[in-house]
Design a binder for these strands. Structure first.
Length: 278
DNA sequence: TCCCAGGGTAGTC
DNA sequence: GACTACCATGGG
């Protein structure tokens, strides 16, 4: 079992801040699924305890990174909302997720709502994933690209994917055929990585930013969605309209801390949404 | 009924 | 390059 002090590790906030879709509350903790692996994570008496593949989940929960240092920098930022958000979400960690699962998950996420994204991903896993058992709990792995590639657009539409069904079928074929090698992209610089991700059908700047951040741990990424755009306007007095330019504005401001700060802000804004403002 | 959700594409200018 | 209609689906 992995055991970590919880000063800068809140398991609930880390799971609920919108970076991962496959987890559920169970007993006194959370059952978390990543790719074909699962773990059970619980927080009590000042410690986070994780049962599961220790090598995989130590990396998954990014235990090597000093989040105290990350958070302190945000707590000292000149922007008040950044300081509030860092205080509120100081236990958030950026997960190192399975790359294929991250690509398909955020393809589905576009113009969609988090509860519905979770339901669609669970449906796809239940139908195409492998049935597994961890600690007596059954779960389904997220299907590999070659399994997804065997299905067509109509199939994914029937699972409620909406207009994203074609994107899933197309990207699955590109990966399955070898035309697109996700793992090789880790050698690319962040800008080149994103440019290649965007070449996939249905992947635009925002989805590429999320994949770069959650799948490749490129913390010099600042995904801009409707919530972040709202933060930009309301809390940074921003006037830009182009989301790519808004993302650049934040990355220039926060550098390698961009991804962490983005998650602090996103989580804070989504949970307060108007309450306790300035 | 319209508006919104972890947006992207294709068409127009 | 910037701007816009349209894309499924479900919740408020």
């Amino acid at each position: 079992m992995i055991r970590v002090k919880d000063e800068f590790f809140n398991i609930k906030d880390t799971l609920e801040c919108g970076q991962i879709f496959r987890y559920k509350s169970i007993n006194d903790g959370f059952f978390v699924i990543s790719g074909d692996k699962a773990c059970f994570a619980r927080q009590r008496d000042g410690w986070v305890e994780i049962e599961g593949d220790e090598e995989y989940f130590s990396r998954f929960f990014d235990l090597e990174t000093d989040y105290g240092a990350v958070c302190r920098r945000a707590l000292n930022d000149s922007n008040q909302t950044v300081r509030f958000a860092a205080e509120y979400g100081k236990g958030i960690r950026i997960l190192r997720q399975d790359r294929e699962e991250t690509v398909f998950s955020f393809l589905i996420s576009q113009n969609n709502m988090i509860p519905r994204i979770k339901r669609i991903i669970e449906r796809i896993s239940a139908v195409l994933g492998e049935k597994k058992v961890f600690n007596g709990v059954e779960f389904y792995s997220f299907p590999k690209a070659y399994v997804l590639a065997a299905k067509d657009e109509e199939f994914f539409a029937s699972l409620g994917c909406g207009y994203r069904a074609g994107y899933i079928a197309s990207v699955a074929r590109d990966i399955e055929s070898g035309a697109f090698a996700l793992q090789k992209l880790n050698e690319e610089k962040t800008d080149d990585l994103k440019a290649k991700l965007i070449s996939l059908r249905g992947v635009g700047p925002k989805v590429a930013d999320c994949v770069a951040l959650f799948g490749y741990h490129r913390t010099d990424s600042f995904p801009v969605d409707t919530w972040v755009e709202k933060i930009y306007r309301e809390d940074f007095d921003g006037t830009l309209r182009d989301r790519k330019k808004i993302a650049s504005f934040f990355v220039e401001r926060f550098g390698e801390d961009s991804g962490y700060v983005q998650q602090y802000l996103f989580h804070y804004k989504r949970n307060f949404n108007g309450e306790r403002k300035k």
